[in-house]
């Protein structure tokens, strides 16, 4: 293994080697002085072989015998004591992008690294706190927007102007956006890991269908539920409900008049929504999913934050959101 110049392991090994070499030199010097060896003795061709023999037998060989195993032992000790750091680094790397409350576990770390790990944890504390404040602020803003928007909506309803209908639609869109912002903020503020216990997916599907059916029927579309098996998952019921609702809203938007949006429960711990639109390509889902991460501008086809929200909820529940364009299905698979 080639180590970078500033590697701790390389510096420690080098240091130890230097100490060994210097020690051996000092030992030789000490022996020379002790036995009164002079350069003349060394130059004397009769004495030299016996001196060399003596030195080899009593100094060089013991030092070699000591140094070789010590070198390997030192390397092993150094590596072993650095290994927890590597493991921690991997853990930090693997912490998911939205995981709140992640902290470096300091129990198995060597004492020397503790101040560093504690500093990292303090930084994570501050980041979490800042994010929470920001999200609480976003929720407050969304909340405060509702009152003026209500007045605006009511005033527009009284207008008898050709533009009134368009304005009403704009208000409906703004309202939906506020709802979505608040769901996102709420999901993050109240730790998403906090579970309600077992959530029956069939019940969620029926509740979402009941909620959305009046709107769908006004828009001349149908909603249906198909249940295979009795799937239930651990998680937050309202969050899963919001995810399925967003999938259904997405389905209603792409389904033509007279079409049906079907919520499919199971088989297995999965819930899916099938529409009668063109089907969502894998790359397109990826783009929509990333929207909230990259603060993209809204798309022209009005998907809003819907699928980004679903993806966030899925991540919080260790679920996977996938698309099957051929079956025109978006699927949430729980672990």
């Amino acid at each position: 293994m080639i180590l970078p110049a500033r590697s701790l392991e390389r510096r420690l090994t080098g240091g130890l080697a230097l100490v060994g070499a210097l020690g051996a030199l000092f030992l030789l010097l000490f022996i020379a002085i002790e036995y009164g060896l002079t350069f003349q003795t060394l130059a004397d061709s009769k004495e030299l072989p016996s001196v060399i023999h003596e030195l080899t037998e009593h100094v060089v060989i013991p030092i070699m015998v000591l140094i070789l195993p010590m070198t390997f032992a030192a390397r092993w000790v150094i590596r072993a004591s650095l290994r927890p750091l590597e493991r921690k680094a991997r853990e930090i790397d693997e912490a998911s992008a939205h995981e709140r409350g992640f902290r470096v576990d300091v129990t198995s770390l060597p004492a020397e690294v503790l101040p560093f790990a504690n500093a990292v944890n303090a930084l994570l504390d501050r980041i979490d706190e800042a994010t929470r404040e920001q999200e609480a602020f976003a929720a407050d803003v969304a909340h405060e927007l509702r009152t003026p928007l209500s007045v605006l909506a009511l005033e527009i309803e009284r207008l008898e102007h050709p533009a009134a209908e368009r304005l009403r639609e704009d208000i409906a869109r703004m309202r939906r956006l506020i709802d979505q912002l608040m769901i996102l903020a709420q999901l993050d503020i109240e730790a998403p890991q906090q579970a309600d216990g077992e959530v029956a997916l069939a019940e969620v599907a029926e509740d979402v269908a009941s909620l959305m059916a009046p709107l769908a029927i006004r828009q001349k579309r149908n909603i249906a539920v198909e249940t295979r098996g009795s799937a239930s998952v651990t998680g937050r019921r309202e969050a899963i409900f919001a995810a399925v609702r967003n999938l259904v809203e997405n389905g209603l938007r792409v389904t033509p008049e007279g079409g049906t949006v079907t919520i499919l429960v199971g088989p297995g711990n999965a819930i899916a929504v099938r529409d009668e639109g063109p089907g969502l390509e894998v790359e397109a889902l990826e783009t929509l999913r990333r929207r909230n991460l990259r603060a993209d501008h809204a798309s022209s086809h009005g998907a809003g934050l819907g699928l980004a929200i679903v993806s966030r909820i899925a991540a919080a529940h260790q679920a996977r959101l996938t698309t099957q364009p051929a079956e025109k299905t978006l699927r949430l698979e729980f672990a």
């Binding site: 599907a205 029926e206 269908a209 009941s210 059916a213 009046p214 029927i217 149908n222 909603i223 249906a224 539920v225 198909e226 249940t227 919520i263």
Partner: peptide, 12 residues
């Protein structure tokens, strides 16, 4: 009278 298949019925 609408059918919401798998759930129930709705009178518009």
């Amino acid at each position: 009278l609408h059918t919401v298949r798998g759930v129930g019925y709705l009178l518009e």
